[in-house]
Design a protein around this nucleic acid. Sequence first.
DNA 1: CCGCATCCGAGTGGATACTG
DNA 2: CAGTATCCACTCGGATGCGG
Lengths: 124, 124
Amino acid sequence: MKKKEHKECMSALLPVRDTLDIIGGKWKLLILISIWEGNKHFREIERSIPKLSTKVLSKELKDMEENQLIIRTVLNGFPVRTQYTPTEHSKTLKKVILELQNWGINHRKEIFGDTSEKDNSIRV
Amino acid sequence: MKKKEHKECMSALLPVRDTLDIIGGKWKLLILISIWEGNKHFREIERSIPKLSTKVLSKELKDMEENQLIIRTVLNGFPVRTQYTPTEHSKTLKKVILELQNWGINHRKEIFGDTSEKDNSIRV
DNA sequence: CCGCATCCGAGTGGATACTG
DNA sequence: CAGTATCCACTCGGATGCGG
C-alpha cells in the first residue's frame, strides 16, 4: 500500500479552514444571527448578545465586512449612526450551519444515547 | 414586527457549537485525516503532521477518543505500542467537511472572483 | 451613538527533558 | 515507543476610559 500524499489533503483543507475561520470562534455566529434577525446598529447588536464587549464586536464586524457577510453604512446625522445589514452571500451560510447542527444533534445521540426530540431548527 | 427570541437561537446553536468544537482548532482535522489515511501510532501521526508537538497531539487524541471519533488500543509487548483507529461514527463527519469545503471554495470565488478550477476533493 | 486605545490576567501552545 | 512535566513566550479577550 503506497503512502498517501498528505500534502494534497492539506490543500484540500484550505477552503475548509477558510470556512471555519469565518464561522468559528466564540461570537461570529451569534453576531451574524443577530444581524439576520434584524438588529442593525452597533449598540443594538451589542445588547442582543450578553457578555460581548465592544472591542470584540468591533473586530468581528470588521472581519465580517471584509468577508462580505455584512455591509456597513454610516448614516449622516448626529450623533453618528452606523447600520449593518446582511448580504445575500451571507445567507448561503445557512445551509452549512444546518449541516453542522444536524451533525451535532446526531453526535449527542451517539455519545449520550439521548433520544429526546426537540425542535431546534435554526430560525432566522 | 415582534422582537424575535434570541434565546431560542442560542439553544439551536448548541449542537452547532459542539460540532465546531470537535472539528475546529488548528489540528483536529489534520489529525483525524491522518488517522483516516491509515496512520495508526503516536509517532506515526506526529511525524505526518509538521509542527505538531507531542503535548498537543496527546491532548487532541484524548479529546477525539472522548468524542468517539477514534479508538485507542494499547498493544502488549515492549516497548509499548498504541494504536489509534477511526470509528464509523467519525466517518459521518466527511459529509460535513465536504460542505465546509464547498462553501469555502465558493466563498473564495465570491471574494476574489477567482474562477480557476482545481480538483481539490477530499481524498480519504 | 460608534468604536478605538490601554491595561492586564488567564489560557494556549511551543520547546525541551524526562519516565515507564 | 508513548506519553507526561516543566518552563516560558505569546495571544486573546475582558474591563475601562476616552475621542469623534
